[in-house]
């Protein structure tokens, strides 16, 4: 039995036993390689679920909408390790109760989906610990290093070119499981912190502030990169912020549901070499 049949069967069992009220998974998309989220509420529809190497999106963002979990019932969701980290962060930030999330865990190895044992976010602590010791993505770090070798004005030029493409569609915000604010700072107009028309300066501010708000929270699922219609390397900035949190404060986002958010805590001996 392949992994897809195995997980369809598990989803059907969860739904027919009444353990979960909803299964969030992947279904056929508009092209052969694309997957779109599928919401299954009854065991008879589990055949719509697809699980293969193309299932890359982080579905944890579908758990945050208001009211979904307020009835106390459980929801099952297909998650890769990055999605499980997102669940831990959302739990640490009091956005959901991890007990209400049943995880159908899998990982993609060599283009194929492989099952991960465990049902609750806490079952994956050891796995996430091994990811932390393996470190952040070396490919992204290579790109970051290339940028950091430039002079500041060259870097500014690079990002100016990238951000000048931004059309402020906010797809990056909508896809991100960490962007759950009911009123985003960019929508606040009294005072208007960020220019909403898509000129380069306003784009700079928007993307800088979003990166700042994701510092120490981004799990590098790559949703922003994939959803950006003009291909701004958003993940690269978020990677640089994750590196700062890891190198300076030893913080790896989403290690457990009890982990304090990096900017909501401090140590007296935090470095302060830059302060005059």
């Amino acid at each position: 039995m392949g992994i897809q049949e195995q997980y369809r069967k598990e989803a059907a069992e969860l739904l027919s036993s009444g353990e979960v009220k909803l299964v969030i998974g992947y279904g056929e998309g508009s092209t052969a390689e694309r997957r779109r989220p599928v919401f299954v509420r009854s065991a008879e529809y589990v055949s719509r679920l697809v699980l293969d190497g193309s299932c890359v999106a982080n579905l944890s963002s579908y758990l945050v909408p208001e009211g979904l979990l307020s009835d106390g019932k459980k929801v099952a969701v297909f998650l890769k390790p990055d999605g499980i980290r997102s669940i831990n962060i959302l739990a640490a930030e009091s956005q959901l109760d991890p007990e209400q999330v049943v995880i159908l865990g899998f990982d993609i190895e060599g283009g194929q989906a492989a099952p991960l044992p465990g049902r609750k976010a806490s079952d994956f602590t050891a796995l996430i610990g091994s990811l932390k010791s393996a470190g952040l993505s070396p490919e992204l770090q290579k790109d970051a290093d290339r940028l950091e070798q430039m002079s500041a004005s060259e870097r500014f030029g690079y990002w100016k070119e990238q951000f000048s493409k931004c059309i402020k569609c906010y797809a990056c915000r909508q896809v991100c499981p960490m962007c759950y604010c009911r009123r985003c700072i960019v929508d606040v107009n009294q005072p208007q912190w960020i220019n909403t028309s898509s000129h380069t300066l306003g784009n700079f501010e928007w993307n800088i502030i979003r990166a700042f708000h994701l510092a120490g929270r981004c799990v590098s699922c790559g949703g922003c990169d994939r959803s950006c219609p003009v291909n701004i390397p958003l993940r690269l900035i978020n990677h640089r912020m994750a590196k700062e949190a890891l190198d300076t404060f030893g913080h790896y986002a989403g290690e457990s549901a009890e982990q304090q958010p990096v900017l909501a805590t401090f140590r007296q001996e935090d470095p302060e070499t830059f302060i005059l």
Binding site: A144, L147, E148, M150, A152, S153, E154, R155, F156, G157, Y158, W159, F204, I208, A211, F212, A215, G216, I237, R240, M241, E244, A245, T248, F249, V262, L263, A264, T265, F266, Q268, D270, P271, E272, F274, I275, L276
Partner: peptide, 29 residues
């Protein structure tokens, strides 16, 4: 100020990475 210090550390890294000159933004006690 402890919370602020963490925030500045991260923010400075972000400014440096986007090429906004760090020497224009100073922090002090």
């Amino acid at each position: 100020n402890y919370h602020a210090r963490r925030r500045w550390t991260v923010f400075r890294a972000l400014l440096a990475f986007t090429g906004i000159p760090e020497e224009r933004i100073k922090f002090s006690w």
